[in-house]
Design a protein around this nucleic acid. Structure first.
Length: 457
RNA sequence: GUCCCCAUCGUCUAGCCCGGUCCAGGACACCACCCUUUCACGGUGAGAACCGGGGUUCGAAUCCCCGUGGGGACGCCA
């Protein structure tokens, strides 16, 4: 087989969303699986709607996801330029070829592509007007995911607008020819465009690439496919919320594809090895943010310590630059983050989860307070604990645990009888990491100060 | 309206191509219990699906047809 060349061809007219990310991912996977080339091409022929910031967002998002391109903007390549706005000469040249072959005509100032066949008029119910149709044989699409699909393309269509700019169908096909694209992997919403494209390939006398139409991602709730405006649809949202790109990519891989067994969390190298077009599902998939969140937690849990601390710091710096955590001593920051790593489901929980570890001015949850103080004689226990702490070894969690247990036993109580009230006093809440770890990190003096201050209040 | 695609637990899916091993497996979510120092994690368990109808066949989740449902397209957007 000749070298595989695939392309991802986004248009910078809006935020980069999950559906685009998955299309890019599947193209990238196929290129990597086959040892082929992944081309990034920017389809910016609609001058009205293109915005430079969206272009940068495409680069940033792809890079963040780890989907590096072999040819395209920023990296170059033998078939550039890779922005359609810079390829006007090429389009004019291809148009001349079509015109020379008698396959175009002008109408209303636009250039139309002429289908071959007998013409007839018919009233179109949907568009409420009479249109000219052409009797043509069906275009056959040999889709690598869907099998053989036939579709009749029976109307001429515009390839150059009256403003002189080419339209999507034309530039898409011309660039696929010019860039030697062998496999067109794109969303199923393009399946009905494919007959237009096939007719154009044939009119150019160019080989028709293999098509692979991947299923669509449906919005989480309500009907229809996911669009940029839907909840959880934007890639940058997950980036902002501190999701790990590996987790998002892993999750996206599983939307419409699977390794053929029960594995869900799998390294991208394994996916690259196993991925193939016939293995892609044919039915649309609904996006489930909760499963994505779970996948993210799994990845977060197994981050090596150094890595996790670095991720946490970067998250704070990007999203909470004013957080007291960032002003803390680096070793202390590290100790706190590692204490909380096994407890959180996502980095975005970190600021709230660790807040009281970075300030003495933390709020006390009144509901928790009422609940905890209602049991036994909590104040007496805090007093006892504070006193006992003076003589307890703070070197390790187990040492602290032994100390508190010894105290509890001497009073005929359990560890829990001290834990709840101590947690309330030290953190202001009833949620958090292990109390012994919390004590160890805070240190004897700060813990005792907090206990005493709580008692005084 | 026309054309195209699709159809297994609430969700993502395995099984379907090469019919029997499936009273349908896994994961997320949910519920219960266990673990436990709170909250999580984890463990165990429960409930939960082959869209309907016709065929073909000794036998169909698996093959065929028709319905129905879902999705997409029908722009001088991409």
């Amino acid at each position: 087989m000749s070298q595989v060349r695939v392309r991802f061809a986004p248009s910078p007219t809006g935020f980069f969303h999950i559906g685009s990310a998955r299309t890019a991912l599947f193209n990238w996977l196929y290129a990597r699986h086959t040892g082929g080339t992944f081309v990034l091409r920017i389809e910016d022929t609609d001058k009205e709607r293109n915005r430079e910031e969206f272009l940068n967002l495409i680069y940033d998002s792809l890079t963040w996801l780890g989907l590096n391109w072999d040819e395209g903007p920023q990296v170059g390549g033998a078939y550039g330029p890779y922005r359609q706005s810079e390829r006007a000469d090429i389009y004019r040249e291809y148009l001349a070829r079509l015109t020379a072959a008698g396959r175009t005509y002008e109408k209303d100032g636009a250039v139309w592509f002429k289908l071959l066949g007998e013409r007839y008029e018919v009233f179109d119910d949907h568009r409420k007007k009479t249109v000219t149709k052409v009797r043509t044989p069906p275009s056959v699409i040999d889709d690598r995911i869907r099998g053989r699909v036939e579709r009749v393309e029976d109307e001429d269509f515009v390839i150059f607008r009256s403003d002189g700019n080419p339209v999507f169908h034309f530039v898409n096909v011309v660039d696929d020819i010019a860039m030697r694209i062998t496999h067109v992997i794109r969303g199923e919403d393009h399946l009905s465009n494919t007959s237009k494209h096939v007719e154009l390939f044939k009119a150019f006398g160019a080989p028709v690439p293999q098509f692979a139409h991947i299923p669509l991602i449906l919005k989480q709730d309500g009907p229809g496919k996911m669009s940029k405006r839907d909840k959880g649809a934007l890639v940058e949202e997950y980036q902002r919320r501190g999701y790990l790109p590996e987790a998002l990519v892993n999750f996206l891989c599983l939307l419409g594809w699977n390794p053929g067994d029960d594995r869900e969390k799998l390294p991208i190298a394994d996916v690259v090895r196993l991925f193939d077009l016939p293995g892609v599902n044919q039915s649309n998939a609904r996006f489930d943010e909760r499963k994505l969140a779970h996948m993210n937690m799994v990845y977060l849990l197994e981050q090596p310590a150094d890595q996790f601390v670095a991720l946490a710091r970067r998250y704070f710096e990007a999203q909470h630059p004013a957080a007291p955590a960032l002003r803390a001593d680096a070793a202390y920051f590290r100790a706190v983050m590692l204490l909380c790593q096994p407890k959180i489901k996502g980095l975005e929980e970190l600021p709230a989860y660790t807040a009281y570890l970075f300030t003495e001015d933390y709020p006390v949850d009144p509901k928790v307070k009422d609940k905890v103080l209602a049991k036994g004689d909590p104040r007496a226990r805090l007093r006892e604990l504070s006193d006992a702490l003076a003589g307890i070894d703070f070197a390790s969690d187990t040492a602290i645990e032994e100390g508190i247990k010894a105290l509890a036993t001497s009073r005929g109580l359990g560890f829990g009888d001290y834990q709840a009230v101590a947690r309330l006093a030290v953190s202001g809440t009833n949620v958090g990491p292990s109390i012994t770890g919390m004590f160890r990190v805070l240190g004897r003096d700060r813990v005792r100060q907090r206990l005493d201050r709580f008692l005084a209040a």
